[in-house]
Design a protein around this nucleic acid. Structure first.
Lengths: 236, 236
DNA sequence: ACAAAAGTGTTTGGAGTACACCCATGA
DNA sequence: TCATGGGTGTACTCCAAACACTTTTGT
């Protein structure tokens, strides 16, 4: 009976970090580059890491996000594990793994998470040996990412659609603390791939008890300023 | 930087196999027993296995089901991975692992799947060294299963609820080929924890194009026999 | 005859959808 | 004053939910 050769088996966690810039849905990717005599490339990958000893999967995901953003209490949700034996078979992926992990890697099963964070000018990324940037989810579909990360992102997107359907308040994780109804409508439409009617959307959100109107309006816009709202959790 | 000691890391796949006996929702569990001078117990576990080399996760789940039931093309859906380092720390679980795998096991991350199958008198289970049986999902909540299998079953149940919400035709995986509307309503209610109105339910299913009425009625019932229906896939 | 489940329509309320105009503000 | 998005109400449709009686069959 063939039991897997544990010598080369590893488990990693990868995070599909979603953000919203007011217009488009974005995903956080890390630059990955190899500079070798006969190998030179520069592409992108998801933030992720091999799991540590005695570390739970959720903990690992949380650690990855905290290391990268400095933030705690980020909304995380495990959505799928990817274990196709061929997922680490691309030569550039193999080379990169050898360089960065110093381990003999035969196979990596990865557990994928989605994360929702507020894009903020103040946010600074601390990627260990490369830099992190936001990429429009539509552009990503045309890019060739490391490993099977294109596929992981696609499944991650499906996942947050389902999640938001079940728990619409998750959208507030993507918005700034104070936001306009337009912003809420746009992020809603981007996630659901719809185009909501403005009046009907207003009617719907006016029934949300956890949405509270502020005595403030947005500033610096070249037109009538919109009212600001905030999200109030049910059990504070 | 602490990288996990791969020597003791393993990945397994566990399947929460759901069946419906006409009345209750059941899950397939395998008897597990240890007979040792100072250790004697008899409890239950989910069907599962360490993954093989070069085997994808879905393949492993499929293999486990085929080995156990002899059936192919069972509906399977991956729903969550469990990797808490403490999940294999119960002494009886450690003992059982050592006896059955002959491996030094430090940690097992398991990828969990749900499966939907038709309970059938003809079904014969081939569990390697023990026997398999159906257990009412409500009874299972009171039982103490191996590892964290209680928790896995609970999450698996939530998963099929979501799945059935998205794709109601999955219920037909649990019903015999010919079934009555009552059976369909009961399995629907069991999964959703609801109590549907008979007339409203009839109205709803009469709009399902993939449900076809047969020229047969059930037999051997001590009351008016109900019409039989079958499920017809959209693209045959 | 009776027990037990099958089968069948109508009404009502709430949610979603379609649709157009005036308002406030900055440039 | 003009360009730009903000903010608002009504009518229609559709789906979900409530609700009770007659029919068939076996015992």
């Amino acid at each position: 009976m063939a039991i897997e050769n544990s010598f080369t088996l590893h488990i990693s966690v990868d995070c599909v970090v979603f953000g919203f810039d007011g217009e488009k849905l974005k995903v956080l990717l890390i630059e990955r580059s190899i500079n070798e005599p006969n190998e030179l490339y520069n592409d992108k990958k998801l933030p992720g890491s091999i799991i540590f000893n005695n570390e739970d999967l959720d903990e690992a995901a949380s650690r990855i996000l905290t290391e990268l953003t400095g933030l705690k209490n980020i909304y995380l949700s495990q959505f799928k594990s990817f274990g196709n034996p061929g997922r680490t078979s691309n030569p550039r992926d193999i080379l990169w793994l050898e360089r960065t992990t110093q381990l003999k890697i035969g196979r990596i099963v990865t557990v994928a998470y989605t994360a929702l964070i507020k894009i903020d000018r103040k946010l600074v990324f601390n990627a260990a040996d490369s830099s992190a940037n936001w990429y429009d989810i539509k552009e990503i579909a045309k890019m060739q990412l490391a490993f099977d990360h294109n596929q992981i992102i696609e499944k991650g997107l499906e996942h947050i659609r389902h999640q938001v359907n079940l728990e619409p308040h998750l959208l507030f994780e993507l918005l700034p603390k104070k936001f306009t109804i337009s912003q809420l409508r746009i992020i809603h439409d981007v996630v659901h791939q719809t185009r909501s009617d403005v009046r009907n959307f207003q009617k719907k959100v006016s029934q949300m008890p956890y949405l509270v109107m502020l005595d403030e309006v947005e500033e610096g816009v070249p037109h009538r300023a919109a009212r600001l709202y905030k999200y109030k959790r049910k059990n504070p």
